[in-house]
Design a binder for these strands. Sequence first.
DNA 1: AATGATTTGTACGTATGTATT
DNA 2: GAATACATACGTACAAATCAT
Lengths: 82, 82
Amino acid sequence: MIDRDAPIPPYRQIANALRQRIKAGKIPPGRRIPSLVELEAEFGVARDTLRKAVQVLKDEGLVETVQGMGIYVVKPDEDVSP
Amino acid sequence: MIDRDAPIPPYRQIANALRQRIKAGKIPPGRRIPSLVELEAEFGVARDTLRKAVQVLKDEGLVETVQGMGIYVVKPDEDVSP
DNA sequence: AATGATTTGTACGTATGTATT
DNA sequence: GAATACATACGTACAAATCAT
């Protein structure tokens, strides 16, 4: 799934893959994304790399992380400045 | 300089310290911040921790990093949406 | 033109802390 | 208390960009 020879680093490839899933509605708003442990198994990368990917999506306002719980897809109208 | 017993993690303490320096004008806009190697020596933390601190300031739009060059204090009117 | 030094970027591994269930 | 999940920190290695020699 990860192309190690691509000009775009793995953490961005993963961010793109997850973004696509979310945009496609495969993971609906409010629902949880697979945990880091699960993603680790799926993508075969270190957790550090996954954190960077998740950080990209957080910066985009697409997901939120909650310590002890998981990574959640934000609802469209959530935390949007009025 | 870093209080390991404080309720706020080291990377945030460092971000605060650097922000204070910038706001106080000790590092003027356009000028470079000490390199990660130098900050490593100054604060006595791992580079990973410094990267997180710098990331905080980047998110605030206070600094910019340029690969191969350094970390720069952004000018007040730089990259502000019109 | 090419090499080396400096600096940030990315990735991996490990350990411990903290919050939630 | 135990299990699960994210947060933080340290260390290491290599890649990529920039600059000076």
